[in-house]
Design a protein around this nucleic acid. Structure first.
Length: 675
RNA sequence: GCCGGGAUAGCUCAGCUGGUUAGAGCGUCGGAAUCAUAAUCCGUAGGUCGGGGGUUCAAGUCCCUCUCCCGGUACCA
């Protein structure tokens, strides 16, 4: 064994304005968790860093839209996402957040370091300023008439109607999206970072990274080809890390610049927690540290170009050793999309399936070289046909056999033969292959290798035929079962990085502590004969079709295409009678978080209550709807909108940007039929 | 528009600098076995590698072109 390496592993900082979904997990969080767990089993020295990215316009905008403070937004998503990771057993050494003071300080120091070296340039330009709100408006906060197509609600950065990319200054009649205030043009001075002057050094550096994934290198080369340009690193905004200079009121460091510094500040925080405040330097300043950034492909430019350029400019820190970016995970052929609300959120899926099942289903199909596809049917198949059938079954058949034929004790292995040693040896070899694969970020191959070991174990069981031996040669049979139990232990270690809960469960069944939970113990005999086995347990219960059918229905409604209605199409009275229109009373009403138009309504229809999600919040304040009698389609097939079930449809009239809900003239008891 | 990526067995995916009969897992079908969550093990079948053209002794792999999908980016004065 040579000198152990030291690893500084990071996972992309999730932006705290949304709940994370399983696409994120497959892309940037489960791979490093497996990687880190494996390194730990090999006694490598490492830290694993992650946390929420909590600044920037999008969060401020979400806050304004919901009429809450940014702090409320980031708290909601920070704690929820942190919990999501925990539920999936993705175990960071620290999961912190960029709103912490230590991060503000670290980012400011970083900024000042570059400023003091005269590496930053300043430029003055015109931007839109709201006198009323006393601040510059971010592009997306401005709406106005599109100069290209005349659409009246174009945003400052792009027109959703014609797709044009716009600058806010081009908009005709611009106004603040939030207050409706009319902004004025005002000059502002911002700092820029000259990426262009680092292009050559970066390019050479990337060229030296021959072992990086091809997709990452391609992205970088693409950027070099178009040429790196300077980029603003400050902006006029309240919510963020303040620019640490005089006369910079109302200015913050741009979030893309400040967020990756979070890796550094979170490292500091971790070592403060450990009672070793300078410990982070052993990682960030040591040329032998392997800094590995796990990210999704959308983040490549930041981690393999911008952040390295910043680190070069600063000079003290190490550069990334590798940036193993994954592609994207699709869902049933469609993209995960926040706006369409069809992502499978981690906080939802962990309520349905055990962490290990989710981890396995995602990991065998990591989007390592191209986008890959996730389906519920696939998850079921992976659980039933692989986890349960191959892995769970081997443990179960071994333990059940030992329990019934050897008094629940580990029999002795006195009558060994070469087959016993062969299988153990092959698992040991397999383990070293797993190690190599994962070290090269080839997780899928590594996992295939793990499962091959378990297949080999089943084969050994079959070929040894202990059910026959028990009748003819009990001592030899005991040796076989002893070996199988040893294999169970090896498997527990082997799968530990991928399936930590299952690994633990196997150890419990074997009544074995974690003292031999080490990679180099794979394929070795570590059990004591005559140990009484623990309680057996089905590791992977079958997933029934009915559950999968239900999930398919639930999630397909989110991706359904809208069917256009033909206005000239006539319906018969029978068709009309299929609709059950009823009068309902609005009992409760609230905005759907992070949605633009949705209100969640609690209705009373006769003696039943109902929940309906309606897209009317741009026209009605929730409070004003309370108590109103409205008309609803009572028997509409329920569907989910942004994860919230809607059990009907509210009728409303709409024209020329006006919308009025259909109410009842006079008073009538709710629940009344409408026809 | 331009740049980049993708399109390979029923499904999900591998195939580095071109080279013998294109691979894996799951599913299918057949067999063996019956300790085990009807779970295992062995074997079989399945692909004109998106369409078309070209280079080459030889192309999934290189070139051209077309179709579809996905990113990025520009312009629409």
């Amino acid at each position: 064994m040579g000198k152990k390496s030291k690893y500084l592993v990071t996972a992309a900082l999730p932006y705290a304005n949304n709940y994370i979904h399983i696409g994120h997990i497959a892309g940037a969080y489960l791979p490093p968790d497996i990687y880190v767990r494996l390194k730990r089993l090999n006694d490598e020295e490492l830290v694993f860093i992650c946390g929420s990215d909590e600044h920037g316009t999008a969060i401020e905008m979400a806050a304004l839209t919901e009429n809450v403070t940014p702090k409320e937004i980031i708290d909601r998503y920070h704690y929820s996402n942190k919990e999501s990771f925990e539920k999936l057993n993705i175990k960071f050494d620290i999961y912190s957040r960029t709103s912490n003071e230590i991060h503000h300080k670290t980012a400011q120091e970083f900024f000042l370091n570059l400023f003091d070296k005269n590496l930053l340039t300043q430029k003055t330009e015109k931007q839109l300023y709201s006198e009323k709100e006393k601040r510059f408006l971010a592009d997306r906060f401005i709406i106005g008439t599109c100069p290209v197509c005349g659409f009246e609600e174009a945003r400052g950065d792009e027109c959703e109607n014609c797709g044009s990319n716009l600058s806010p200054l081009e908009l005709i009649n611009p106004k603040s999206k939030i207050t409706g205030d009319i902004p004025v043009e005002k000059e502002t001075t911002l700092f820029y970072f000259p990426f262009g002057s680092y292009q050559e050094e970066l390019s050479k550096w990337i060229d030296s990274k021959t072992d990086w994934k091809q997709n990452v290198i391609n992205y970088c080369k693409g950027w070099f080809k178009t040429g790196l340009r300077e980029r603003a690193i400050t902006r006029d905004l309240d919510w963020g890390v303040k620019v640490p200079l005089e006369n910079q009121n109302g200015k913050v460091i741009y979030v893309w610049f400040e967020a990756p510094i979070g890796y550094i500040s979170m490292s500091k925080e971790l070592f403060i927690e450990k009672g070793n405040p300078d410990g982070w330097k052993d990682y960030w300043f040591d040329k032998d540290t392997k800094l590995v950034h796990f990210i999704g492909k959308d983040n490549i430019v930041f981690h393999s170009i911008m952040f390295p350029a910043m680190l070069m400019a600063h000079g003290d820190y190490i550069l990334p050793y590798n940036v193993p970016a994954n592609e994207f995970l699709n869902f049933s052929g469609a993209k995960f999309s926040k706006s369409k609300g069809n992502g499978i959120l981690v906080k939802d899926i962990v309520k349905i399936f055990p962490a290990d099942v989710i981890r396995y289903a995602l990991a065998v199909n990591f989007p390592e070289t191209k986008d890959s596809d996730f389906t519920w049917d696939d998850l079921q198949a992976k659980n039933n046909n692989e986890l349960a059938a191959i892995l769970g079954n081997f443990i179960n058949r071994t333990v059940v056999f030992a329990k019934s034929k050897f008094d629940g004790k580990i029999p002795s292995a006195e009558i060994k033969n070469e087959n016993d040693e062969k299988i153990l040896e092959s698992i040991k070899l397999s383990a070293s292959r797993v190690n190599e694969f994962i070290d090269k970020f080839r997780f899928r191959d590594g996992i295939t290798e793990m499962m091959n070991s378990v297949r080999a174990a089943n084969k050994y069981f079959n070929d040894s035929e202990p059910w026959k031996l028990i009748k003819s040669d009990k001592a030899r049979c005991g040796s076989v079962i002893n070996t199988c139990l040893e294999i169970c232990h090896s498997i527990a270690v082997l799968i530990n990085p991928l399936l930590p809960d299952t690994s633990k469960a196997i150890l419990e069944i074997l009544n074995k502590d974690e003292s031999d939970l080490k990679w180099n113990k794979i394929g070795r005999r570590v059990l004591k004969q005559d140990t009484i086995l623990g309680e057996n347990k089905i590791l992977f219960p079958q997933i029934e079709d009915s559950l999968i059918i239900r999930l398919n229905e639930e999630y397909s409604s989110k991706t359904e295409k809208l069917v256009e209605t033909d206005e000239t199409n006539l319906v018969s009275i029978d068709d009309f009678r299929k609709l059950e229109l009823k009068v309902a009373k609005i009992m409760d009403c609230e905005r759907v978080p992070k949605s633009k138009k949705l209100l969640k309504l609690k209705l009373k229809v006769g003696d039943k209550s109902k929940q309906i999600v309606a897209g009317i919040s741009e026209y009605y304040e929730p409070e004003k709807l309370l108590g109103k009698l409205v008309v609803i389609v009572n028997n509409l097939q329920p569907s989910k909108l942004m994860g919230i079930e809607s059990q009907g449809m509210l009728l409303a009239a709409k024209k020329n940007g006006e919308l009025k809900i259909v109410t009842v003239e006079g008073d009538i008891e709710e629940g009344a039929d409408v026809n």
